[in-house]
Amino acid sequence: MNQVIALPSSAPFRQAVAVQNFAPAAPLTCTDLSARYGPIQVCFDISLATMPGEIVAVLGPNGAGKSSLLGALAGTVSGQGSVKLSGEDLESLPAHLRARRGLAFVPEIRGNIFPVLSVEENLQLVLHALPHGDRARMRDRVFELFPILKTRLSTDAGMLSGGEQQMLAIAMAVARKPKALLLDEPTQGLAPAVFDILETTFKSLSQSGLPILLAEQNIRFAARVAHRYLVLAGGRLVGAGEGHELHNADRIVERYFPKDLDGSEDPSVVP
């Protein structure tokens, strides 16, 4: 039935399946999810589940299908298969209704911000969708996570630094009071100094019970925040394991990311 059965029964993989067995209690689950761009299928029968407060890193080189998987979950990429958020079926809903149901997605290169709108206007776009009583609270929460944004309210989002733009992108997703958060390569192109802020933020969100699915090529950063990891290759789930295993990044790379024919390692993976 799904890709999982065809995989080798490595220890990490058995753990991934064990977690999937808790799917009824998991806020975000997908079963046999495929993604495609027109006639080209890029993800094949992927099943996963994230528990409350759990950060699951989705690893893989360029072209592995990480972004497509997150897009299929969020509804921005054509997908087939079951997607459930807190028990509610999302697969028949368009992307904007999935967002309204509580599935927040921060695409790569801060694709959810509006460069020619001010930071204040960007935040208002999402805060306005909340009930009146929640707006001030979520606004405070956002500034608690990213105090710098409070000093940039009148600045156009496009004029912010890359790190500040990423903070705004995450703030806009968090401000909606999501039930699950999808993050696509949040560290891409950012200075290492910003990593600390993102790490603190993700851990804070995790502690508040928010499940996070984190597509990431930087294994060292994933090791700092992830409770579990999954590995994608060629659009298929090829491995899984506990977050602490990521501290031995070289082993992960050696195991899951084969060298090119000329013997060089995939430059898209940062061990």
């Binding site: 969020a74 921005t76 368009p94 992307a95 904007h96 209704l97 967002a99 309204r100 927040a104 997605f105 695409p107 694709g111 959810n112 911000i113 509006f114 460069p115 020619v116 709108l117 206007e121 208002q124 776009l125 999402v126 306005h128 969708a129 806009m172 997703a173 909606r176």
Partner: peptide, 23 residues
């Protein structure tokens, strides 16, 4: 808010969708 959503939909349709706006 409607005007803001109209502008957002024009500037970045994908981002607007992810903000829950019916583009």
């Amino acid at each position: 808010p409607v005007g803001r959503m109209m502008r957002a939909s024009a500037i970045n349709p994908r981002g607007a969708t992810l903000a829950g706006i019916p583009v």
